[in-house]
Design a protein around this nucleic acid. Structure first.
Lengths: 216, 216
DNA sequence: CTAGAAGTGGATAGCTCTGCTCCGTTTCTC
DNA sequence: GAGAAACGGAGCAGAGCTATCCACTTCTAG
């Protein structure tokens, strides 16, 4: 695959600087860094960035492979936790934790329309695992039966929003929001009686589609 | 106050068209409509819009007076509901309902930095009323004691995020998100025992400050 | 009906912000 | 030290926004 000759030593050095700078920048600022931003951060000319990464998408992809791997590792670790509820919580909290320190990752997982491919690949690996986590939590009676898989993207979305706004000022506020939400989802069957306006079943995978932010 | 002569009849007609168009546009698109957008929507020249509303802020303010009034009416109506829990829910759901149909209103209440004055005025009237709603809900034991006033801006924020993303595709999804969250907040004292990582008290008004989106 | 005041439209100038290219200069490598 | 490779960043093109200006149309008072 890599039929191209190795780069000259200085060029390779610059490539690394660009990657490092882009990485930091994306984590701090988010997905929509420009070639110019990166060049400045890497102390390199714009031209150099364009030469090395003519397509911004490729650069982004390169940056995110490892991040997505981290999430996948997390989901797999969570599946190994014996207590189902703890496992589910570990995944959700861990995922948000990762996103709390990495605006770019959050952007990616929120799927702003851009970056669909990479995000979808990740979702495809994460989806089944989450379903399993939820299934186990249901089976053990620790998760309210009227809360379904489809609700967890909502949780991500909701707590992610808090995260987003409080990032600078109180970077741990999202934990409280998450704790309160999850605590509400905790097992106890819905009161048989006055469940009038109570939300019913498990919305299907449609919710995931809904949360794909509409491309502006 | 209104020392200016009345407008010529056609001018007044145009003024109304502009106002109407701007109103619809703001509801649909959000707070940052331009003079050009408005002109096109009103089928009027840009010049006309500029002549009538040289300062965009004034136009926006004019549009929002009535919206804010609607929220205030809501809060007051909610206080009149005898059952404290229903009252609290009515306010929160109603508020989100209003925002669901009106992107501009949502922008305003989220306080994106712009429009601070108007939003703050609204907040000042709404704040005490919400505190009262929460107090009553606590007193009646219908609201978990470890959920405080400060948590409701979080709820707005969270459900607002869902609202935002699903607006186009499934405009009622936010209801489920809200129902699940509120249902989780419902009275039952926190389990005395294993409340290890459970969120504790009522964060103060600091949260409101946090949710003021940091001016970009 | 008419004169002239009031109002209109929208082309356009000026600005900012972005993506990207191009080529004179520097740096590497053999 | 010659020639290939890489560099830097000024600057161009294009999009989008604000705001102005003035030849033309529409209203209204008399």
């Amino acid at each position: 695959m890599d039929g191209s000759k190795p780069l000259r030593r200085d060029a390779e050095r610059n490539r690394q600087r660009i990657l490092a700078a882009a990485n930091a920048l994306v984590a701090e600022v988010g997905l929509d860094v420009t070639h110019n931003d990166i060049a400045r951060a890497a102390e390199v000319g714009v031209g150099t960035v364009y030469r090395r990464f003519p397509d911004r998408q490729e650069l982004i992809d390169e940056l995110f492979d490892q991040r997505v791997d981290r999430i996948i590792a997390l989901v797999e670790a969570s599946l190994l936790i014996e207590d189902p509820w703890s496992g589910l919580c570990a995944f959700i909290a861990g995922n948000l934790e990762l996103q709390a320190g990495d605006k770019g990752l959050k952007d990616l997982m929120a799927g702003d329309g851009r970056t669909t491919d990479l995000a979808k690949r990740a979702q495809r690996r994460i989806g089944p695992a989450v379903r399993e986590l939820v299934r186990r939590a249901h089976a053990s009676g620790q998760l309210r039966p009227d809360v379904g898989v489809g609700d967890f993207p909502l949780v991500q979305e909701m707590v992610g929003a808090v995260l987003e706004h409080s990032r600078r000022i109180d970077p741990d506020l999202w934990r409280r929001a998450l704790a309160l939400v999850l605590d509400g989802y905790r097992g106890r069957r819905p009161a048989a009686g006055a469940a009038a306006g109570r939300p019913r079943p498990t919305p299907g995978p449609r919710i995931e589609q809904v949360l794909e932010r509409p491309p502006r």
